[in-house]
């Protein structure tokens, strides 16, 4: 059980770190790579697509669905757990 919870926490940390908003970037105080001797050339990235930039307000539908599903899942599992405990 302990092993499982530890693994679960590890998976959660990894999942959160993939989301840029949750990821923490830490600058190393020690230089680990050789400094570049030549100035880097900036390569412009033109928009050569045939679609106009997407300037919508973003959709939170999936996030709300996840919240609803997790609440339902939590509720169902809790009820089942209580029933199991009562049988004992």
């Amino acid at each position: 059980m302990k092993k499982f919870i530890t693994a679960l926490i590890a998976v959660m940390i990894m999942a959160f770190s993939t989301v840029s908003a949750f990821a923490v970037s830490v600058d190393s105080p020690i230089a680990t790579t050789e400094p570049e001797t030549q100035a880097t050339t900036i390569v412009p990235k033109p928009d050569d697509g045939n679609k106009s930039p997407k300037t919508g307000s973003g959709s939170d539908v999936i996030t709300y669905l996840l919240i609803a599903a997790s609440v339902i899942g939590c509720g169902v599992a809790s009820v089942a757990l209580v029933k199991t405990a009562k049988k004992n």
Binding site: I5, A15, T63, L66, I67, S70, L81
Partner: peptide
């Protein structure tokens, strides 16, 4: 299951 659901809830 409860832990996973709670984690998803907190994440969302």
């Amino acid at each position: 299951s409860i832990i996973v659901c709670a984690a998803i809830f907190l994440f969302a």
